[in-house]
Design a protein around this nucleic acid. Structure first.
Length: 433
RNA sequence: GUGGGUGUAGCUCAGCUGGUAGAGCGCUGCGUUGUGGUCGCAGAUGCCGCGGGUUCAAGUCCCGUCACUCACCCCA
Protein backbone atom coordinates (compact mmCIF):
# COMPACT_ATOMS: atom_id res chain seq x y z
CA UNK A 1 0.00 0.00 0.00
CA UNK A 2 1.21 3.45 -0.83
CA UNK A 3 1.71 5.68 2.17
CA UNK A 4 -0.42 8.77 2.59
CA UNK A 5 1.21 12.13 3.23
CA UNK A 6 -0.14 15.07 5.14
CA UNK A 7 -1.79 17.75 3.03
CA UNK A 8 0.57 20.40 1.73
CA UNK A 9 1.90 22.87 4.25
CA UNK A 10 0.53 21.42 7.47
CA UNK A 11 3.02 20.63 10.22
CA UNK A 12 3.18 17.53 12.40
CA UNK A 13 4.64 17.96 15.85
CA UNK A 14 6.07 14.66 17.01
CA UNK A 15 8.05 13.81 20.15
CA UNK A 16 10.27 15.16 21.46
CA UNK A 17 9.52 18.47 19.74
CA UNK A 18 5.82 18.20 20.48
CA UNK A 19 6.73 18.73 24.14
CA UNK A 20 8.22 22.08 23.26
CA UNK A 21 5.19 22.96 21.17
CA UNK A 22 2.91 22.32 24.14
CA UNK A 23 5.23 24.23 26.41
CA UNK A 24 5.21 27.26 24.10
CA UNK A 25 1.44 27.21 23.80
CA UNK A 26 1.14 27.07 27.57
CA UNK A 27 3.61 29.91 28.16
CA UNK A 28 2.03 32.16 25.56
CA UNK A 29 -1.36 31.94 27.21
CA UNK A 30 -0.35 32.04 30.85
CA UNK A 31 0.07 35.84 31.20
CA UNK A 32 -3.51 36.33 30.01
CA UNK A 33 -4.79 33.65 32.37
CA UNK A 34 -3.03 35.40 35.23
CA UNK A 35 -4.56 38.75 34.29
CA UNK A 36 -8.25 38.04 34.50
CA UNK A 37 -8.83 36.91 30.94
CA UNK A 38 -11.41 34.13 30.56
CA UNK A 39 -11.09 31.29 28.08
CA UNK A 40 -13.35 31.16 25.05
CA UNK A 41 -13.63 28.00 22.94
CA UNK A 42 -14.76 28.64 19.39
CA UNK A 43 -15.58 26.63 16.29
CA UNK A 44 -12.88 26.10 13.73
CA UNK A 45 -15.27 26.88 10.88
CA UNK A 46 -17.72 29.73 10.50
CA UNK A 47 -19.99 31.25 7.88
CA UNK A 48 -17.87 32.64 5.07
CA UNK A 49 -19.70 35.94 5.41
CA UNK A 50 -18.25 36.47 8.90
CA UNK A 51 -14.75 36.76 7.51
CA UNK A 52 -15.77 38.69 4.40
CA UNK A 53 -17.41 41.33 6.56
CA UNK A 54 -15.06 41.11 9.52
CA UNK A 55 -11.62 40.71 8.00
CA UNK A 56 -12.48 42.67 4.88
CA UNK A 57 -12.87 41.68 1.24
CA UNK A 58 -9.92 43.82 0.21
CA UNK A 59 -7.46 41.71 2.21
CA UNK A 60 -5.33 38.99 0.68
CA UNK A 61 -6.49 36.72 3.48
CA UNK A 62 -10.06 36.86 2.24
CA UNK A 63 -9.31 37.24 -1.45
CA UNK A 64 -7.01 34.32 -1.94
CA UNK A 65 -6.13 32.48 1.23
CA UNK A 66 -9.35 31.12 2.69
CA UNK A 67 -10.37 27.48 2.80
CA UNK A 68 -13.97 27.88 1.72
CA UNK A 69 -16.38 25.11 0.86
CA UNK A 70 -20.09 24.43 0.62
CA UNK A 71 -21.57 22.19 3.26
CA UNK A 72 -24.39 19.71 2.79
CA UNK A 73 -26.99 22.35 3.44
CA UNK A 74 -25.54 24.48 0.64
CA UNK A 75 -24.10 27.00 3.10
CA UNK A 76 -20.77 28.62 2.42
CA UNK A 77 -18.39 27.66 5.20
CA UNK A 78 -14.82 28.80 5.79
CA UNK A 79 -12.10 27.40 8.02
CA UNK A 80 -11.20 30.33 10.23
CA UNK A 81 -8.17 32.27 8.96
CA UNK A 82 -7.85 34.35 12.15
CA UNK A 83 -9.45 34.60 15.57
CA UNK A 84 -10.88 38.03 16.16
CA UNK A 85 -13.91 37.83 13.88
CA UNK A 86 -15.04 34.58 15.49
CA UNK A 87 -14.64 36.02 18.98
CA UNK A 88 -16.74 39.03 17.99
CA UNK A 89 -19.42 36.81 16.55
CA UNK A 90 -19.57 34.73 19.73
CA UNK A 91 -19.57 37.78 21.99
CA UNK A 92 -22.49 39.26 20.08
CA UNK A 93 -24.37 35.97 19.82
CA UNK A 94 -23.98 35.25 23.53
CA UNK A 95 -24.74 38.85 24.52
CA UNK A 96 -21.47 39.27 26.39
CA UNK A 97 -21.38 42.83 25.08
CA UNK A 98 -24.48 43.55 27.18
CA UNK A 99 -22.75 42.51 30.37
CA UNK A 100 -19.95 44.10 32.34
CA UNK A 101 -17.23 45.70 30.29
CA UNK A 102 -14.57 45.28 29.22
CA UNK A 103 -14.99 41.68 28.17
CA UNK A 104 -11.58 40.03 28.40
CA UNK A 105 -11.10 36.73 26.62
CA UNK A 106 -8.33 34.44 25.47
CA UNK A 107 -8.35 31.60 22.99
CA UNK A 108 -6.02 29.21 21.28
CA UNK A 109 -6.14 26.75 18.47
CA UNK A 110 -5.61 26.15 14.77
CA UNK A 111 -6.21 28.64 11.96
CA UNK A 112 -6.08 28.04 8.24
CA UNK A 113 -4.68 29.95 5.31
CA UNK A 114 -4.10 28.52 1.86
CA UNK A 115 -0.72 30.18 1.31
CA UNK A 116 2.39 28.80 -0.28
CA UNK A 117 4.20 27.12 2.62
CA UNK A 118 7.45 28.59 3.84
CA UNK A 119 9.66 28.52 6.88
CA UNK A 120 7.31 29.45 9.71
CA UNK A 121 4.32 29.75 7.43
CA UNK A 122 1.88 26.91 7.51
CA UNK A 123 -1.54 26.24 6.07
CA UNK A 124 -2.66 25.14 9.48
CA UNK A 125 -1.16 27.52 12.01
CA UNK A 126 -1.56 27.67 15.75
CA UNK A 127 -2.24 30.87 17.61
CA UNK A 128 -2.86 32.02 21.13
CA UNK A 129 -4.90 35.21 21.22
CA UNK A 130 -6.64 37.63 23.52
CA UNK A 131 -9.37 40.20 22.98
CA UNK A 132 -10.40 43.00 25.35
CA UNK A 133 -13.68 44.46 24.20
CA UNK A 134 -15.62 47.49 25.34
CA UNK A 135 -13.04 50.02 26.49
CA UNK A 136 -10.84 52.56 24.74
CA UNK A 137 -8.82 53.24 27.87
CA UNK A 138 -5.13 53.37 26.89
CA UNK A 139 -4.38 51.19 29.90
CA UNK A 140 -6.08 48.34 28.04
CA UNK A 141 -3.98 48.92 24.93
CA UNK A 142 -0.80 48.87 26.96
CA UNK A 143 -1.91 45.88 29.02
CA UNK A 144 -2.65 43.78 25.96
CA UNK A 145 0.74 44.59 24.48
CA UNK A 146 2.45 43.90 27.81
CA UNK A 147 0.72 40.52 27.98
CA UNK A 148 2.30 39.51 24.70
CA UNK A 149 5.68 40.92 25.68
CA UNK A 150 5.55 39.03 28.96
CA UNK A 151 4.54 35.84 27.16
CA UNK A 152 7.60 35.94 24.91
CA UNK A 153 9.93 36.87 27.76
CA UNK A 154 8.65 34.05 29.95
CA UNK A 155 10.03 31.64 27.36
CA UNK A 156 13.45 33.23 27.64
CA UNK A 157 13.28 34.96 24.26
CA UNK A 158 15.50 38.02 24.00
CA UNK A 159 16.13 38.80 20.35
CA UNK A 160 12.65 40.02 19.46
CA UNK A 161 11.38 43.58 19.27
CA UNK A 162 8.05 45.33 19.26
CA UNK A 163 6.95 47.53 16.36
CA UNK A 164 4.32 50.04 17.36
CA UNK A 165 2.27 52.69 15.62
CA UNK A 166 -1.20 54.22 15.41
CA UNK A 167 -3.32 53.80 12.31
CA UNK A 168 -5.77 56.56 13.19
CA UNK A 169 -9.54 56.34 13.23
CA UNK A 170 -12.55 56.97 11.05
CA UNK A 171 -12.06 60.69 11.68
CA UNK A 172 -8.49 61.08 10.48
CA UNK A 173 -7.69 58.07 8.33
CA UNK A 174 -9.85 58.88 5.28
CA UNK A 175 -8.09 62.19 4.77
CA UNK A 176 -4.69 60.55 5.13
CA UNK A 177 -5.72 57.78 2.78
CA UNK A 178 -6.50 60.32 0.08
CA UNK A 179 -3.22 62.08 0.70
CA UNK A 180 -1.31 58.83 0.37
CA UNK A 181 -3.20 57.87 -2.79
CA UNK A 182 -2.28 61.21 -4.31
CA UNK A 183 1.34 60.53 -3.48
CA UNK A 184 1.23 56.98 -4.85
CA UNK A 185 -0.27 58.17 -8.12
CA UNK A 186 3.01 60.01 -8.76
CA UNK A 187 5.05 56.80 -8.32
CA UNK A 188 6.05 54.35 -10.99
CA UNK A 189 4.29 51.15 -9.92
CA UNK A 190 3.31 47.92 -11.60
CA UNK A 191 -0.32 47.12 -12.23
CA UNK A 192 -0.74 44.81 -9.26
CA UNK A 193 0.65 47.41 -6.88
CA UNK A 194 -1.51 50.14 -8.41
CA UNK A 195 -4.54 47.95 -7.82
CA UNK A 196 -3.52 47.58 -4.23
CA UNK A 197 -3.01 51.32 -3.93
CA UNK A 198 -6.57 51.85 -5.06
CA UNK A 199 -7.97 49.21 -2.72
CA UNK A 200 -5.84 49.67 0.39
CA UNK A 201 -3.07 52.21 -0.13
CA UNK A 202 -1.58 51.72 3.34
CA UNK A 203 -0.41 48.26 2.45
CA UNK A 204 1.82 49.57 -0.32
CA UNK A 205 3.98 51.15 2.39
CA UNK A 206 4.92 47.68 3.55
CA UNK A 207 6.29 46.52 0.20
CA UNK A 208 9.77 45.01 0.61
CA UNK A 209 10.82 45.29 -3.01
CA UNK A 210 13.55 47.90 -3.50
CA UNK A 211 11.96 49.25 -6.65
CA UNK A 212 8.87 50.11 -4.65
CA UNK A 213 10.40 50.94 -1.27
CA UNK A 214 12.88 53.43 -2.76
CA UNK A 215 10.02 55.51 -4.15
CA UNK A 216 8.28 55.64 -0.80
CA UNK A 217 10.92 57.27 1.39
CA UNK A 218 9.09 60.60 1.23
CA UNK A 219 5.59 59.15 1.40
CA UNK A 220 3.24 60.79 3.91
CA UNK A 221 2.76 58.75 7.08
CA UNK A 222 -0.37 58.15 9.09
CA UNK A 223 1.42 59.01 12.29
CA UNK A 224 1.84 62.60 11.07
CA UNK A 225 -1.83 62.91 10.19
CA UNK A 226 -3.46 61.70 13.39
CA UNK A 227 -6.39 63.71 14.69
CA UNK A 228 -6.12 65.28 18.14
CA UNK A 229 -7.95 62.44 19.88
CA UNK A 230 -5.88 59.74 18.20
CA UNK A 231 -2.66 61.59 18.93
CA UNK A 232 -3.59 61.95 22.59
CA UNK A 233 -4.65 58.32 22.81
CA UNK A 234 -1.40 57.15 21.27
CA UNK A 235 0.63 59.34 23.64
CA UNK A 236 -1.18 57.86 26.60
CA UNK A 237 -0.72 54.30 25.35
CA UNK A 238 3.00 54.89 25.15
CA UNK A 239 2.98 56.42 28.62
CA UNK A 240 1.35 53.37 30.16
CA UNK A 241 3.57 51.07 28.14
CA UNK A 242 6.57 52.69 29.83
CA UNK A 243 4.98 51.96 33.18
CA UNK A 244 4.63 48.32 32.14
CA UNK A 245 8.32 48.39 31.26
CA UNK A 246 7.78 47.33 27.66
CA UNK A 247 10.28 48.70 25.13
CA UNK A 248 9.14 49.37 21.57
CA UNK A 249 10.25 50.77 18.26
CA UNK A 250 8.21 53.39 16.43
CA UNK A 251 7.14 51.78 13.16
CA UNK A 252 5.17 54.37 11.22
CA UNK A 253 5.25 52.30 8.03
CA UNK A 254 3.93 49.14 9.61
CA UNK A 255 0.70 47.90 8.15
CA UNK A 256 -1.32 44.89 9.04
CA UNK A 257 -3.06 42.68 6.58
CA UNK A 258 -6.41 42.75 8.28
CA UNK A 259 -8.71 45.67 7.45
CA UNK A 260 -10.30 46.22 10.82
CA UNK A 261 -7.36 47.73 12.66
CA UNK A 262 -7.55 51.31 13.93
CA UNK A 263 -5.45 53.37 16.30
CA UNK A 264 -2.96 51.26 18.31
CA UNK A 265 -1.34 48.64 16.10
CA UNK A 266 1.63 46.47 16.90
CA UNK A 267 3.71 43.54 15.82
CA UNK A 268 6.38 41.46 17.52
CA UNK A 269 9.25 40.62 15.23
CA UNK A 270 11.98 38.02 15.62
CA UNK A 271 14.97 38.24 13.26
CA UNK A 272 15.91 34.58 13.62
CA UNK A 273 13.08 33.21 11.52
CA UNK A 274 13.93 34.25 7.98
CA UNK A 275 11.38 36.11 5.96
CA UNK A 276 8.37 35.20 8.08
CA UNK A 277 9.60 37.18 11.04
CA UNK A 278 6.37 38.19 12.76
CA UNK A 279 5.81 36.10 15.86
CA UNK A 280 2.73 37.97 17.01
CA UNK A 281 0.69 41.03 16.28
CA UNK A 282 -2.53 42.83 16.87
CA UNK A 283 -4.19 46.11 17.48
CA UNK A 284 -7.33 48.04 18.19
CA UNK A 285 -10.47 47.75 16.13
CA UNK A 286 -13.18 50.38 16.45
CA UNK A 287 -15.80 49.43 13.92
CA UNK A 288 -15.59 45.65 13.83
CA UNK A 289 -18.24 44.76 16.34
CA UNK A 290 -20.81 47.10 14.84
CA UNK A 291 -19.93 45.83 11.36
CA UNK A 292 -20.84 42.35 12.56
CA UNK A 293 -24.17 43.45 13.96
CA UNK A 294 -23.20 44.11 17.56
CA UNK A 295 -22.85 47.12 19.81
CA UNK A 296 -20.67 50.10 18.92
CA UNK A 297 -17.80 48.84 21.03
CA UNK A 298 -14.10 49.18 20.42
CA UNK A 299 -11.79 46.29 21.18
CA UNK A 300 -8.13 45.40 21.11
CA UNK A 301 -6.40 42.07 20.86
CA UNK A 302 -3.52 40.07 19.50
CA UNK A 303 -2.67 36.76 17.94
CA UNK A 304 0.62 35.09 18.80
CA UNK A 305 2.01 32.44 16.51
CA UNK A 306 2.77 29.26 18.42
CA UNK A 307 4.59 27.65 15.49
CA UNK A 308 6.77 30.70 14.90
CA UNK A 309 7.44 31.27 18.57
CA UNK A 310 8.71 27.71 18.79
CA UNK A 311 10.99 28.40 15.82
CA UNK A 312 12.18 31.56 17.55
CA UNK A 313 13.03 29.59 20.70
CA UNK A 314 14.95 27.12 18.56
CA UNK A 315 16.75 29.96 16.79
CA UNK A 316 17.86 31.33 20.15
CA UNK A 317 19.03 27.92 21.32
CA UNK A 318 16.46 27.71 24.10
CA UNK A 319 15.25 24.25 23.20
CA UNK A 320 14.62 21.69 24.48
CA UNK A 321 12.31 23.63 26.74
CA UNK A 322 11.38 20.60 28.80
CA UNK A 323 13.59 17.57 29.26
CA UNK A 324 11.48 15.33 31.39
CA UNK A 325 7.98 14.05 31.24
CA UNK A 326 8.42 11.05 33.51
CA UNK A 327 9.39 10.86 37.19
CA UNK A 328 9.65 7.14 37.71
CA UNK A 329 10.19 4.10 35.50
CA UNK A 330 9.17 0.78 37.08
CA UNK A 331 10.97 -2.40 36.02
CA UNK A 332 9.57 -5.82 36.86
CA UNK A 333 12.10 -8.65 36.71
CA UNK A 334 10.46 -12.03 36.22
CA UNK A 335 6.80 -13.02 35.97
CA UNK A 336 5.91 -12.92 39.68
CA UNK A 337 6.97 -9.26 39.77
CA UNK A 338 4.55 -8.14 37.09
CA UNK A 339 1.52 -7.85 39.35
CA UNK A 340 3.17 -5.93 42.21
CA UNK A 341 4.82 -3.68 39.63
CA UNK A 342 1.52 -2.73 38.08
CA UNK A 343 0.02 -2.19 41.54
CA UNK A 344 2.85 0.17 42.40
CA UNK A 345 2.53 1.92 39.04
CA UNK A 346 -1.15 2.60 39.70
CA UNK A 347 -0.45 3.87 43.22
CA UNK A 348 2.26 6.20 41.93
CA UNK A 349 -0.01 7.62 39.27
CA UNK A 350 -2.85 8.13 41.74
CA UNK A 351 -0.39 9.99 43.98
CA UNK A 352 0.41 12.32 41.09
CA UNK A 353 3.81 10.89 40.24
CA UNK A 354 4.39 10.57 36.51
CA UNK A 355 5.21 6.89 36.15
CA UNK A 356 5.62 4.30 33.43
CA UNK A 357 6.37 0.60 33.46
CA UNK A 358 8.63 -1.61 31.38
CA UNK A 359 6.60 -4.11 29.37
CA UNK A 360 7.33 -7.22 27.30
CA UNK A 361 9.46 -8.92 29.98
CA UNK A 362 12.62 -7.27 28.84
CA UNK A 363 15.94 -8.29 30.30
CA UNK A 364 17.05 -6.01 33.09
CA UNK A 365 19.83 -4.70 30.90
CA UNK A 366 17.57 -3.66 28.09
CA UNK A 367 14.97 -2.45 30.58
CA UNK A 368 17.57 -0.16 32.10
CA UNK A 369 18.39 1.09 28.63
CA UNK A 370 14.74 1.84 28.04
CA UNK A 371 14.61 3.56 31.43
CA UNK A 372 17.56 5.70 30.46
CA UNK A 373 15.96 6.83 27.24
CA UNK A 374 12.84 8.01 29.08
CA UNK A 375 14.96 10.45 31.07
CA UNK A 376 13.11 9.47 34.24
CA UNK A 377 15.27 10.45 37.22
CA UNK A 378 14.18 7.44 39.26
CA UNK A 379 13.91 3.75 38.46
CA UNK A 380 12.20 1.23 40.69
CA UNK A 381 13.26 -2.37 40.24
CA UNK A 382 11.18 -5.27 41.54
CA UNK A 383 12.67 -8.74 41.11
CA UNK A 384 12.63 -12.10 42.88
CA UNK A 385 15.02 -10.93 45.62
CA UNK A 386 12.83 -7.92 46.39
CA UNK A 387 9.65 -9.99 46.41
CA UNK A 388 11.10 -12.36 49.00
CA UNK A 389 12.03 -9.47 51.29
CA UNK A 390 8.99 -7.26 50.61
CA UNK A 391 11.19 -4.49 49.27
CA UNK A 392 11.97 -2.61 46.08
CA UNK A 393 15.11 -1.01 44.71
CA UNK A 394 14.94 2.71 44.07
CA UNK A 395 17.72 3.90 41.81
CA UNK A 396 18.65 7.51 41.19
CA UNK A 397 19.57 7.61 37.52
CA UNK A 398 21.44 10.87 37.78
CA UNK A 399 23.82 9.86 40.56
CA UNK A 400 23.70 6.11 40.04
CA UNK A 401 22.99 5.53 43.75
CA UNK A 402 20.44 2.96 44.66
CA UNK A 403 18.84 1.86 47.88
CA UNK A 404 16.42 -0.80 49.06
CA UNK A 405 13.11 0.39 50.48
CA UNK A 406 10.15 -1.42 51.96
CA UNK A 407 7.50 -2.16 49.35
CA UNK A 408 4.69 -0.64 51.45
CA UNK A 409 3.10 1.83 49.06
CA UNK A 410 2.38 4.66 51.45
CA UNK A 411 5.88 5.13 52.85
CA UNK A 412 7.50 4.18 49.56
CA UNK A 413 5.62 6.85 47.61
CA UNK A 414 6.39 9.45 50.25
CA UNK A 415 10.08 8.58 49.96
CA UNK A 416 9.89 8.73 46.16
CA UNK A 417 8.26 12.15 46.26
CA UNK A 418 10.90 13.43 48.66
CA UNK A 419 13.69 12.16 46.46
CA UNK A 420 12.10 13.77 43.41
CA UNK A 421 11.90 17.07 45.23
CA UNK A 422 15.55 16.99 46.19
CA UNK A 423 16.56 16.04 42.64
CA UNK A 424 14.49 18.93 41.34
CA UNK A 425 16.13 21.33 43.77
CA UNK A 426 19.55 20.11 42.70
CA UNK A 427 18.94 20.49 38.99
CA UNK A 428 17.57 23.97 39.59
CA UNK A 429 20.78 24.85 41.39
CA UNK A 430 22.79 23.52 38.45
CA UNK A 431 20.74 25.54 35.99
CA UNK A 432 21.50 28.70 37.88
CA UNK A 433 25.23 28.20 38.07
C1' G B 1 -0.23 32.78 -7.62
C1' U B 2 5.50 33.90 -9.22
C1' G B 3 10.82 32.61 -9.01
C1' G B 4 15.30 29.75 -7.10
C1' G B 5 17.24 25.25 -4.63
C1' U B 6 16.93 20.14 -3.09
C1' G B 7 15.13 14.97 -3.27
C1' U B 8 20.47 8.49 -1.54
C1' A B 9 19.36 4.01 5.25
C1' G B 10 14.98 6.30 11.13
C1' C B 11 18.19 11.26 11.19
C1' U B 12 22.40 14.38 9.00
C1' C B 13 24.75 13.71 4.68
C1' A B 14 29.07 11.56 1.12
C1' G B 15 29.03 9.24 -3.65
C1' C B 16 34.84 12.92 -8.66
C1' U B 17 34.38 13.33 -15.28
C1' G B 18 27.98 7.31 -16.04
C1' G B 19 30.17 0.75 -14.42
C1' U B 20 24.48 -2.64 -10.35
C1' A B 21 25.45 1.88 -2.86
C1' G B 22 28.68 4.30 1.78
C1' A B 23 29.87 7.29 6.63
C1' G B 24 28.45 9.39 11.29
C1' C B 25 24.48 9.40 14.66
C1' G B 26 20.46 6.41 16.14
C1' C B 27 18.53 1.32 16.57
C1' U B 28 19.16 -4.23 17.98
C1' G B 29 22.42 -7.80 20.21
C1' C B 30 26.96 -9.24 22.80
C1' G B 31 31.15 -7.94 26.49
C1' U B 32 28.50 -14.52 31.45
C1' U B 33 26.03 -14.86 37.04
C1' G B 34 19.80 -9.02 38.28
C1' U B 35 21.46 -2.54 36.37
C1' G B 36 21.41 2.45 32.00
C1' G B 37 24.41 6.67 30.58
C1' U B 38 31.31 5.88 28.77
C1' C B 39 34.08 2.18 25.89
C1' G B 40 34.80 -2.22 22.59
C1' C B 41 32.70 -5.87 19.17
C1' A B 42 28.83 -7.68 15.97
C1' G B 43 24.27 -6.85 13.24
C1' A B 44 19.72 -5.04 10.71
C1' U B 45 17.64 -1.29 7.56
C1' G B 46 17.77 1.49 1.16
C1' C B 47 11.99 0.20 -5.57
C1' C B 48 19.13 6.20 -4.60
C1' G B 49 11.03 10.63 -4.73
C1' C B 50 8.04 8.78 -9.12
C1' G B 51 7.52 8.11 -14.64
C1' G B 52 9.84 8.25 -19.22
C1' G B 53 14.30 8.90 -22.39
C1' U B 54 19.75 8.49 -23.93
C1' U B 55 23.33 4.30 -23.21
C1' C B 56 26.15 -2.16 -23.53
C1' A B 57 25.53 0.17 -18.60
C1' A B 58 22.19 5.80 -14.80
C1' G B 59 22.11 7.35 -7.84
C1' U B 60 25.26 9.86 -11.49
C1' C B 61 23.15 12.74 -18.16
C1' C B 62 18.13 14.66 -20.50
C1' C B 63 12.67 15.49 -20.14
C1' G B 64 8.37 15.36 -17.28
C1' U B 65 6.00 14.88 -12.64
C1' C B 66 5.36 14.98 -7.43
C1' A B 67 7.21 16.34 -2.78
C1' C B 68 10.04 19.28 0.30
C1' U B 69 12.54 23.85 0.90
C1' C B 70 13.92 29.18 0.49
C1' A B 71 12.32 33.83 -1.31
C1' C B 72 8.35 37.32 -3.44
C1' C B 73 3.07 38.93 -2.73
C1' C B 74 0.90 38.44 2.14
C1' C B 75 0.78 37.01 7.11
C1' A B 76 1.28 34.38 12.95
Amino acid sequence: MAAINAPKGVPDYVPPRSRDFLHVQEKLSSPARLSGYEYIELPVFESTELFERGVGTSTDVVQKEMYTFTDRGDRSITLRPEGTAGVMRAVIENRLDKGSLPVKLWYRGPFFRAERPQHGRYRQLQQVGVEAIGSVDPIIDAEVIALADQAFRSLGLKDFHLDLTSLGCSQCRPAYRTKLQDFLSTCDLDQETRDRAALNPLRVLDDKRDTVASQLVDAPLMIDSLCVQCQEHYDQVRGVLRMFGVPWIEAPRMVRGLDYYTRTTFEFVHPGLGAQSGIGGGGRYDGLMAELGGSELSGIGFGLGVDRTLLACEAEGLTPLSERILDVFVIPVGDPSREPSVALLVALRVAGVAADVCVDNRSIKSAMKAANSTNAPLVIIIGPDELSTSSVIVKNMLSGDQRSLSSGHETLITAVQETLRSIQAETRKEDQS
